[in-house]
Design a protein around this nucleic acid. Sequence first.
DNA 1: CCCGACTGCTGCATTTCTTGCATCATAGCG
DNA 2: CGCTATGATGCAAGAAATGCAGCAGTCGGG
Lengths: 301, 301
Amino acid sequence: MRHMRTLLMIRDVANAGSIRRAAEDMNITGSALNRQIQKFEEEFGGPIFERLPRGVRLNTAGELLMHHIQAQLSDLERVRGQVADLSGERRGHVTIACSQALNPTFLPREISRYRAEHPGVRFTVRLRDRAQAERELSSFTTDLAMVFEPVYLVDFEVIKAVEQPVCAVLARDHPLAAAAVLRLRDCLSAPHVVPSRDYGVRHLLDMATRGRSLGLDPVMEADSFELMRQYVLYEQVVGFQIPIGLGPGLDPRMVVRRIDPRDVEPGLLLVGQMRGRTLPVATAKFAQQVSSALEELSDAV
Amino acid sequence: MRHMRTLLMIRDVANAGSIRRAAEDMNITGSALNRQIQKFEEEFGGPIFERLPRGVRLNTAGELLMHHIQAQLSDLERVRGQVADLSGERRGHVTIACSQALNPTFLPREISRYRAEHPGVRFTVRLRDRAQAERELSSFTTDLAMVFEPVYLVDFEVIKAVEQPVCAVLARDHPLAAAAVLRLRDCLSAPHVVPSRDYGVRHLLDMATRGRSLGLDPVMEADSFELMRQYVLYEQVVGFQIPIGLGPGLDPRMVVRRIDPRDVEPGLLLVGQMRGRTLPVATAKFAQQVSSALEELSDAV
DNA sequence: CCCGACTGCTGCATTTCTTGCATCATAGCG
DNA sequence: CGCTATGATGCAAGAAATGCAGCAGTCGGG
């Protein structure tokens, strides 16, 4: 797309942090690129970059412009997708930032279901914590985000929200496995493992224990829900997860028990997009499919 | 802005309906413009225009692209406004599509109040009926719309809504002027004038009389609220208007009477924008000011 | 302290792209 | 049947972008 060559140049310069470096990457000389930038700044009515001794950096105006550029690029992609859609073929690329919980069963199942109908659509799945996911929405790095208990919510437009209670994961022969519903104090009296502070499950646990006598005293704090899930098979500990991450294919040697909602309130699993943006056809359809899948899932509970 | 020259060309060709005609308007030859279009279509991956014996017309893909172009143009304007805002000066241009009711007092007052603080901001006010106003929002021809009882509401994002009851306007010496609140049947028994079908006031009157024995039997049906207002001074008729169109500067020879809310339900006066769009700074500020003015106004009633 | 490596910037020659002119084929209108 | 529109195209002149070489400035390390 020729008409936005200059905009792409600006973006690449901003990413590279130096005109010459960006110029090399795109196989032109620094001087040519430099002049493009200068010409643009003149037309724009003011500088876009700060000139530093070691390169360039976007100034405030540049940041605003950058946002516009990203939006324009993504919107053009959407238009091209829609046009391709007119001629029958459904093509496109869906980029999702999601938290770990969606990995084991939910996303694989949904993506394959979608691709069965639209084989022309490709997917990129980025594993991100909730704060990162929202940042990537803002920077148009990702189209869709699925996060548990998001933090900022400024540019986040909720497409679908379902409640997800925090559950305990334990070995089948764990003493607590007998009860159908567990009290939080029992879980915390036993040895337990918790996710690190970036995660929504941990956030809910922190909220539940704040100001109470019982506190977290984890034998392990980890980044990986899969690790923690497997760990209950090796040592008699209690792990914490949300149901969506514990699909039907759960190891038969472990069990899942709900925690009394009086102790830990359920969190929200959100599907969202960048506020105000019109999603490409493929992405919008997928978002819709995921939403109704979540709907059924929450009805089942 | 050089980088969207091609896009502007496409827009102008679409508007002119012919490449040569558009070329003349922008002082280049038809061949040059023709080649720009062809080059773009090649890059885009398909034709944008239908070639007709009498000129060109956007095809479906072109329509989609056109929407994108207009969105980009308006978003770039927004960015430039925000950047200008950084350097202290508040500049910009606010385009409003509004129904007639806002004309006599409300908009003049609000615009002058705004300009007193920000003299760099210019205004364009377009008088439109409610359907036109919404279409102009969709086509980015206007930034803000103020309409009474809008019809479609698909691309319309409500910024502010206030109730406006339908009122009767009559000469001070009209027999009905004695009562503080009028019944609709009394108004319709007397000679009356009503707005034409495009207007929200008429819509509410139609709703109120539908299926009732009393029907509209206007001596005059008109497009102009000002005309109808003045007319009550010349013949003993009842006119219908909403309070916001009847500011403090009302002619002392006429009076306004509320109509019993049991007879005609109040309509909604809406301030709105194109759904999902980020408004330019100046426009957003003005929308905010107007909203709070409406707030006070409805508190007063 | 100085030298090298990096930065952005600029004058000049070259290449690439855009534009204007003349022309063609086509289709509607009177 | 002309007349006058339309969009498309070949060719040459003009405009714009690019590459090259070199400038001044800053930073880091010997």
